[in-house]
Design a protein around this nucleic acid. Structure first.
Lengths: 129, 129
DNA sequence: GGGCGTGCTTTGCACGAGAAAGCTAAGGGC
DNA sequence: GCCCTTAGCTTTCTCGTGCAAAGCACGCCC
């Protein structure tokens, strides 16, 4: 198609950007969890990610249904506490996602470099309205 | 709060992840555009990002209304063509966003490193249901 | 025992991504 | 001249989902 540009079809499609993970709040949750194999409590997550209870609850449900986190309800003393961890699969998906992010960043850096010298020209044969 | 963890409030909140930019398709569009100061045509973008006409149109409108891209309608020969470029402000916002992404990645890398040795313990005083 | 705090869940809304259909005009056969 | 196709977008619709606010359950304290 646009072979003369030497840019393959879908070069910037980033298909690997998992919808479930590619979300501000969830990204934070997963990054928090990724560092601690022993998990985090609901309230820890809430504070680390600056989320409201409701929000966090909903995101955790989504992540759990996707098999990404493991939710264990238990007690500390006599108070209920929810413990969250990454599942093995979740960790894998997270790392895959991160790898794609890296390639996005690489593209961005290259773009910023290549654009250094601004060419304010029009494309071949293009005439403004 | 959780000072003993030495993790400040909101450590993983990533407030800087601009909602307008933090979206798969738009991220691709902007990265494509960032590299070419002379802009890209609608159909180029469509192919580069593997987007449908409708989708691309909608995203471009959003980006235009946010003042991130500049849309010029013109002609190539007798056929209409739409030329898209990053605005100065758009470029700035893109670079800011990218900077935040970098910090996310840094966190992720650190997390992956720290989690090397899995401690499958329970938190202090936690007992499963 | 009644109010208060903690720890979540549920409900409701509003926005927004993506699919699908539409719309306009230019070629191309006949 | 007339239709059919193709290019090049735009508009509309629907459903998912992020987020806020209200709700619920229980323990604690005076």
């Amino acid at each position: 198609m646009s072979d003369k540009k030497s840019q393959p079809e879908g070069r910037y499609a980033y298909e690997g950007l998992d919808r479930v993970l590619h979300e501000k709040a969830r990204l934070g949750i997963l990054t928090s969890l990724a560092a601690r194999a022993d998990g985090l409590l609901f309230s820890d997550l809430k504070h680390l990610c600056n989320l409201t209870d409701g929000n966090l609850s909903r995101h955790l449900t989504v992540l759990q249904e996707a098999g990404i986190v493991d939710i264990q309800k238990g007690f500390r003393g006599r108070r209920p506490q929810t413990l969250c961890r990454l599942t093995e699969q979740g960790k894998k998906r997270y790392l895959d996602y991160i790898a794609v992010l890296e390639s996005v960043l690489a593209d961005a850096v290259e773009a910023a470099k290549g654009a250094r010298k601004l060419r304010r020209t029009m494309p071949e044969g293009f005439s403004p309205a």
